[in-house]
């Protein structure tokens, strides 16, 4: 009998239980799921005086910026926070105490992140489609593009969050450490602020990082056809986006795997106890 199959199934059910728990907690529901869509749809309506095509482009540009931001937050801040705090409170160690526990844990975290991302993205995208002019999925190709860009973006970003969460001893500081570069990239990669107004070196530099390419993919899926044709340069750009994101994902997973193994090996009862005492002394 395959022993790993039980662990995978147990992991999937853990992911589901955790998503349910986060949805039944009002504070988490609000800050984790509803806040971002509310903010970005509000911004669109505050900016929304532009009539016709320009207005449609501006509105959908902001929404796409919001989705990119959401992906970055999920991949970095959320992953760091979950991993850091579960390392500190002993959840990770508990997983080590049972056979194949780490397999189950990894499956659970993946399922948790995927499920949470699907919900968050739906909460952002569906109201956007209904309320924001120009923000639309024109056909099956765009739906497909949206799905793979989101999936690949998370795969590229999550290892970064995981590495930070595994390396930093204070999960609360780790969250800001992993969020800061993400926000800097969101601001400089032409997803919130047009890229043209950035200095040339910034325009060149951001193309090395995943956030720019997530933006390119999402814009081509969700913005008006004219904008996509004029600004993004068609299928070639999408291929490059897929390539860069995949490269980050592969490299990230290779590093994350080693770092996580090390973190798991180094967790023990007395270390969890130490971390707890430190946290109590710090008061946060």
């Amino acid at each position: 009998m395959n022993t790993k199959a039980d662990a995978v199934r147990a992991g999937l059910s853990r992911g589901l239980i955790e998503i349910k728990a986060s949805l039944s907690n009002p504070a988490e529901l609000l800050s984790g799921y509803l806040l971002m869509p509310a903010i970005f749809i509000t911004i669109v309506f505050l900016l929304g005086d532009g009539e016709g095509e320009a207005g449609a482009t501006a509105g959908s540009f902001v929404m796409v910026g919001g989705i990119t931001m959401l992906l970055v937050m999920l991949g970095t801040a959320t992953v760091t926070q979950v991993l850091g705090s579960e390392r500190e409170d002993g959840t990770l160690l508990r997983a080590r105490c049972v056979p194949d526990g780490m397999v189950g844990y990894a499956v659970a975290k993946t399922a948790h992140l995927a499920g949470m991302a699907a919900l968050c993205l739906a909460l952002m995208i569906v109201p956007g489609l209904l309320l924001v002019d120009g923000f639309a999925l024109r056909g099956a190709v765009e739906v497909f593009t949206l799905l793979w860009v989101c999936a690949l973006s998370l795969l590229a970003l999550a290892p970064i969050g995981a590495i930070t969460g595994a390396l930093m001893s204070n999960p609360r500081i780790a969250v800001s450490v992993s969020m800061m570069p993400g926000i800097a990239l969101v601001l400089s990669s032409g997803v919130m602020i047009p890229l043209e107004i950035m200095p040339d070196w910034v325009q060149a530099a951001v193309k090395v990082f995943p956030v720019y390419w997530s933006g390119v993919g999402l814009q081509s899926a969700l913005m008006p056809a004219e904008y996509a044709a004029a600004e993004l340069g068609g299928a070639w750009q999408l291929t490059r986006a897929a390539g860069v994101l995949a490269l980050w994902a592969v490299a990230g997973f290779a590093v994350a795997q080693r770092v996580l193994r090390r973190a798991a090996r180094h967790t023990s009862g007395s270390r969890v106890q130490e971390a707890r005492e430190k946290a109590m002394k710090r008061g946060y």
Partner: peptide, 28 residues
């Protein structure tokens, strides 16, 4: 293994938690 201090899984329900960890032993 019962370690010195646990504060994990605070939001899980007791039966759910015990049942979940039991599943890992089924193949053994």
């Amino acid at each position: 293994v019962v370690l010195q201090s646990w504060r994990d899984h605070a939001r899980w329900r007791v039966r759910e938690l015990v049942d979940h960890f039991g599943r890992f032993y089924a193949p053994y």
